[in-house]
Amino acid sequence: MTPVKLDLSPLRRAAAWHWAEYAFWLLPLVAYFVFPKNLALLSQIAITALFCLSLDLILGYAGIVSLGHAAFFGLGAYAAGLMAKYGWGDPLLGLAGAALAAAAAGFLTSFLVLRGADLTRLMVTLGVSMMLYEAANKLTDFTGGVDGLQGVDIQPVLGMFSFDLYGKTAYWYSVAVLFLMFWVARRLVHSPFGLSLRGIRQNVGRMPAIGAPVNARLVAAYTIGAAYAGVAGALLTQTTQFVSLDVMAFSRSAELLLILVLGGTGSLYGALIGTMVFMAAHHFLSDINPQYWQFWLGAALVLIVLFARDGIMGLLRKLSAPARTPS
């Protein structure tokens, strides 16, 4: 009996870092020196990018549609905020706590989400996030309700870098966390686990036949996605030292979906680029008129769905396709 030889080289090649990726990660460095006045906005971009990455993991890779992803973001935000308020102000500890809290919630709700098809999933995720929103709204003693959670006191990162007024620490801290989490996610989606998720998305029926436990994989993916969202929420809390109720709002989930679709689902860089484009556009256009911005946001969404379903990454791929050999 000869052992089966699999040619894994295409997968290895896909898993290796492309030169454009190295170039991409120079951007945060460049941005720091080019826009020193906008560090707060840049930190926001990094945080939203991480949040978007988390949705990409569950939607783009595992194919689980969610209308309530902000629930985990909000859980993480409140977890980190409450920890800091009651004495555990170490930022890294806060991140871990937020990740745990969100992952636990993700794990528990994943069983609800697994039941039923797309439509049921949409409504269950929406329902769960609305429940959490109401809970946060009503537990005013605990969360501050509509007024937001005050008195969040964050200690210096690693005991050395305290959060300064200019947002320098906040910026580097957010970017570092984003990069680390991205690196892990990148390893993850190129691992056999990540490939099996892609297989599940493409053909649920066949995956059990090649020995992939579909439900267990989806539960794992959903839990990981929730943990990522929790970390993003915690970052927001720690860099702004405040938690407002709208971290859990429906509009945040909807906006996130838009960002991801704009960038392109099923591609980690799609999530990052989508966030950059969206946040930059938001920054410049909503200065002109907030209502105007929301209108064009809606219009953009409609147009993307009708004409450019693969988002920015789809366009980039189309542009770069002739240069590559057909595979």
């Binding site: 979906l257 946001l297 809606g298 769905v305």
Partner: peptide, 8 residues
Amino acid sequence: LFSIGLIF
């Protein structure tokens, strides 16, 4: 997504 766009 489409109908969220319309809502906005």
